[in-house]
Structures are given as C-alpha cells and as structure tokens.
Design a protein around this nucleic acid. Structure first.
Length: 190
DNA sequence: CGATTTTGACCTGCGC
DNA sequence: GCGCAGGTCAAAATCG
C-alpha cells in the first residue's frame, strides 16, 4: 500500500464542489466547507440531529484524526507519519484539511464523480442505522478521502464528505475531453 | 493475478 | 484514568 510520503502538512485552499455537482440535480444541498479541529461527528447529527455528546449540530469540519495510528499492532509495519508521531508524542500538530460535504438523493451509496476510489473501511456510527464507508482516491499521488453515509432519517439521502483536493485531473473528464483536445490540436496546427 | 472489498482489531481524541 | 466513538490498518476474501 502506498501511504508513504503523504504531504499532510499542506494547507490547500478550500475545495470547490466537484464538477459533477454543478449540473447534478440530485444534489439536494451543499453543507459547508471549513477547517476546524473537531471530528465530523455522525452525519445524521450533521443535518439536524445530535452530534456526539450533545454537541450542537455543527457544520462539516476538519479532521483531527489525520494524525493517528502510531503502532503496527503486531501485524504490519510502522509507516510514514506514524513513525513521526512515535518519535514526538504529543508534538504532532493537528492537521486540518479542507472538507466539503453534500447530500445527494440517490439509490446508490457511491455517486460517480469521475474519480476512482478504493474503500478502506466501513464503520457503524452512532445514531445511524447505516454504516459509514471510507474511501481513498486510488491515484498514487493523490490522498483525497471521502466518507459516504446514508441518512437513517431519510434513506434516500446519501451524505458524501470529501476531504482534500485532487492533485490530478478527473479521469472520466479527461476521457471525455481527450478526443476534443486532439481535434483542437489538429485544428490549431494549421 | 492484480485490484478491490470486507472486516476485525487497533489507535486517538474527547468527555466525564 | 476510563470508556466511547470515529477513523484507519492490513490480512483475508472476492472479483474481473
């Protein structure tokens, strides 16, 4: 796996909604994008319900857990940032990354946004009937993540939270544009 | 056979 | 300090 060399220290500007969202009528609401240091909490809470331990239903926010796991649990090996944390316990600063969350009305949990994602975890969350799924962009140099969760209140709504910004073009988009670009190059050669 | 998903264990942060 | 909840890892299973 390729978790090495992740540039977690960058602080890119807040992301704008993915291109597909712009023309997607099924997107019922864009939540927010900000960077605090509070956990996301459960998404049901996010849209009106209670967030963990009575916190007010907050907007989507930054992730504290980006700086995490430091041991190999006896099976694997210690990697990348984890080593750092081990060396400097408590010195690892909280890494906040731009996050953007939105609701979509869809039968599919995973909406096709043109990027390729690999699922790396699934977790049952409190106050929600449905589990939350965790995905990572499969592009080697890209460490964008997203969480997907269906609301228990309204099962037709899927909340997708993007974390980070893709540092590569959208594959589907490029596929679509490739012939056009070719043609443009051809024409401009005259 | 490589890529992806599943899933249980583990880690961290936070509230009490 | 303890327990809970969220987030991630990584081996095993599954898929194409």
């Amino acid at each position: 796996m390729d978790y090495h060399g992740r540039d977690e220290t960058r602080h890119p500007p807040p992301p704008s909604p993915p291109p597909f969202l712009m023309a997607n009528p099924s997107v019922s609401s864009l939540l927010t994008s900000s960077s605090t240091s509070r956990p996301l909490g459960d998404l049901d809470g996010l849209v009106g319900g209670r967030v963990r331990n009575g916190e007010p239903p907050a907007a989507v926010d930054g992730s504290p857990s980006a700086c995490r796991k430091s041991v190999d649990d006896g099976r694997g090996e210690v990697v990348g940032e984890n080593k750092e944390r081990r060396k400097n316990p408590g010195k690892m600063r909280k890494i906040t990354r731009p996050r953007i969350a939105f609701q979509t009305r869809s039968a599919d949990d995973v909406l096709d946004d043109g990027y390729r994602w690999r699922k790396y975890g699934q977790k049952a969350v409190k106050n929600s009937t449905y589990p939350r799924s965790y995905y990572r962009c499969t592009h080697h140099t890209c460490n964008v993540k997203k969480q997907v969760q269906r609301l228990s209140k309204d099962t037709t709504i899927v909340v997708t939270t993007y974390e980070g910004i893709h540092n590569h073009p959208c594959e589907k988009l490029m596929e679509t544009l490739a012939p056009l670009l070719d043609q443009m190059q051809f024409l401009s050669s005259f």
